[in-house]
Design a protein around this nucleic acid. Structure first.
Length: 290
DNA sequence: CACCAGGCAAGCC
DNA sequence: GGCTTGCATGGT
């Protein structure tokens, strides 16, 4: 992987196991959108970014080396060897196919607070609507970010949301999840839930702590562990994962608990990566929906 | 018009 | 403890 500058744009070459479409469409994030001409625009960690991939070359527009090193290198998980992960996972026909299909997936290292709220919103919802709710939340309560002559909005911090009531969130149209968002914000703002403390815990302890938040159950907590806390053994089982696992590894219907146990035993610390390859493969091919 | 969407909490037994 | 049900909203 090499870096060079052309004007204000940072060019990264020599990428392996990296594909923006796979990364943004595997269900882990909600704030990146295709913008014609193959580029994507998104907001993360309080910064907006236009990014474009062509083969093994990535262009980050109007990006300083400082921002790349302090934010984007870690966010895109560029220092992890996904070739090794894929090799280990591709030990059966199902995973071989899934890894081949979504070979450019990376698990983004996202902000914990944003991940908590985003996956609270994800409950009993669909991805286009989740994205809509989050964009309205950011536009209403986030901070303005100017980038490339346009205005974007940061994800609102918990102090801003802790001051609100469910009625204030009505325009966001989050439905029954509005009170959960506010419960989460108040717990973070009061220190009842503490990011440093959560990060000091192992996956099991962090999960227990997260599940104290109203609206965070087993599945949402697993998503937060994986996408916001780098606990790569977390294997969130949603309807898509349940379907593809039942279809490919079981003989018909199976409980979420049994599927989770199977995943931990088979994939171990790589469960989260396996989950992302499977989710992308299942959704893009509508596997199990018949 | 049912039914479903990256589930969860509250209310039952 | 496990099992059932209501939940907001929008798309099919």
């Amino acid at each position: 992987m090499e870096l060079e500058y052309k004007g204000n744009n940072l060019i990264v070459t020599g990428l392996k196991d990296f594909d923006l479409k796979h990364i943004f469409d595997c269900g882990q994030c909600f704030r990146w959108n295709a913008d014609g001409d193959g580029s994507y625009i998104g907001v993360a960690r309080g910064r907006a970014l236009r990014i474009k991939q062509s083969g093994d070359t990535l262009t980050l527009y109007d990006t300083s080396e400082k921002d790349f090193e302090s934010v984007w290198r870690g966010y895109f998980d560029l220092d992890r060897d996904y070739g090794e992960i894929k090799k280990k996972l591709a030990s059966d026909d199902v995973m071989r196919a899934a890894v081949l299909y979504g070979g450019g997936i990376r698990i983004l290292n996202q902000d914990l607070w944003e991940t908590v709220v985003s996956f609270i919103i994800s409950a009993s919802n669909n991805i286009p609507r989740i994205k809509g709710i989050i964009e309205r939340l950011c536009a209403a309560f986030g901070k303005e970010i100017e980038y490339g002559g346009e205005i974007y909005y940061s994800f609102p911090d918990f102090e801003a949301l802790a001051r609100l009531t469910p009625e204030d969130l009505a325009p966001i149209r989050a439905g029954f999840r509005d009170k959960y968002i506010i419960d989460a914000a108040r717990r973070f703002a009061s220190g009842d839930i503490d990011e440093k403390y959560i990060r000091s815990l192992d996956a099991e302890g962090a999960k227990k702590e997260l599940m104290r938040i109203n609206g965070v159950g087993n599945k949402v907590a697993n998503c937060i562990l994986l996408f916001g806390l780098s606990h790569t053994e977390a294997f969130p089982v949603d309807v898509w994962i349940k379907r593809i696992m039942e279809y490919c590894y079981f003989d018909g219907e199976e409980s979420i608990e049994a599927i989770s146990r199977f995943a931990l035993e088979r994939f171990g610390d790589l469960g989260g990566f396996a989950q992302q390859y499977l989710f992308f493969y299942a959704r893009e091919n509508k596997i199990g929906t018949v």
